[in-house]
């Protein structure tokens, strides 16, 4: 168990190093843009992993959370001239409040309520963003959202911004690992494993779920804010249910509940549409077939492939045989 986990950390490190090296070989704005989006997706999925991956509660509202994060930071920095550093913190706080506010009513009950309320919430956010044209710019969008600087380095190019969010992603990854390996992570996994047993152990299942959901909302809102400042432009057209589903797909394809899986999923699913672009009209259907195939043949995600190939996960049980 221990070595398997250490190997995963090594792989995570290797992936981050690899991502950091990519701009050196492909200094092309198109690729760098994709890289930025990839790492932002990674941060959002690290969050989604808490509630949907570890705790097993389907959250279909990531787009709404992401949008709230994006608009909070964009509007505050643009309209009030606040430093994006402050407004990004405000976004994370908005995520926190959102997690609590939305989690409390929808997680009080067992079952699919979270999926439904988050889905509805996400749509409400999108409709508001579309129609409050005076504030959000509607489908025309908000333009010239400011970039910012880290110390004396202005993040004026996409490459610089990429390195900034890569560092952020590494920090978020470490945070995820710490929480996952803690007693809270254990509680999350326990809820997914056997809901009925939790309460009889003196643990309040609602609080556990709300905590996981709040973490997801904080990560998601942060991701949204990073996206807004990266893109410099946001429109309500981007925050559709498709986006929410896309994050669930990333989670599934990479491997539910596994942080290395989240990284792999973000990389593969963000790249896939670009790699399939040459197919032209057939791109969408090929993409869907690949996702479907992954769900059918690799229900535990690409990460399970790694386990099978390396034999790391089953080494113990093979060596010791059945009980």
């Amino acid at each position: 168990m221990k070595t398997a986990r250490r190997n995963q950390y090594l792989w995570m490190g290797a992936l981050f190093v690899f991502l950091a090296l990519v701009p050196l070989f492909a200094d092309n704005n198109y690729y760098i843009t994709i890289l930025n989006q990839m790492v932002i997706n990674m941060i959002v999925v690290f969050g989604l992993n808490f509630i949907t991956g570890l705790t097993g509660q389907m959250n279909l509202g990531t787009a709404g959370i992401y949008a709230i994060g994006a608009y909070t930071s964009a509007l505050l920095s643009k309209n009030f001239g606040l430093s994006p550093w402050l407004t990004m913190i405000a976004s994370v706080c908005a995520g926190f409040l959102l997690g609590r506010g939305l989690g409390y009513p929808s997680l009080k009950m067992k079952g699919v309520y979270l999926s439904l309320t988050t889905l509805a919430f996400s749509e409400i956010v999108r409709i508001f963003a579309t129609n409050l044209i005076d504030i959000t710019g509607g489908t025309q969008g908000l333009k010239s959202i400011p970039r910012f600087s880290v110390g004396w380095i202005a993040l004026d190019t996409n490459t610089k911004y990429f390195y900034f969010i890569l560092v952020v992603a590494i920090a978020m990854c470490l945070l995820s690992i710490r929480i996952t390996d803690s007693k809270w992570g254990r509680e999350f996994r326990a809820v997914k494993d056997n809901q009925d047993a939790i309460e009889s152990l003196g643990l309040d299942i609602r609080r556990i779920k709300i905590r996981a959901f709040t973490l997801a909302a904080m990560y998601g809102a942060f991701g949204g804010a990073l996206y807004a400042h990266f893109n410099g432009y946001i429109t309500s057209l981007s925050f559709t249910t498709d986006l929410s589903i896309n994050y669930v797909i990333i989670l599934m394809v990479g491997g539910i509940g596994n942080i290395l899986g989240n990284m792999i999923g973000s990389i593969v699913v963000t790249l896939l549409p670009e790699l399939l672009r040459f197919l032209g009209d057939y791109y969408q259907i090929t993409y869907c077939i690949l996702v479907l195939a992954s769900a059918l043949f690799l229900p535990d995600g690409l990460i399970s492939l790694y386990g099978k190939v390396m034999g790391v996960f089953n080494k113990r049980s093979v060596a010791e045989g059945g009980e």
Partner: peptide, 21 residues
């Protein structure tokens, strides 16, 4: 039995003691 079947025995027990932490 309602155990956390994907976890180890020790982890199951640790969760049992978590309400005291």
């Amino acid at each position: 039995i309602k155990l956390f079947s994907a976890m180890t025995v020790t982890e199951n027990l640790m969760i049992g003691g978590q309400s005291k932490t």
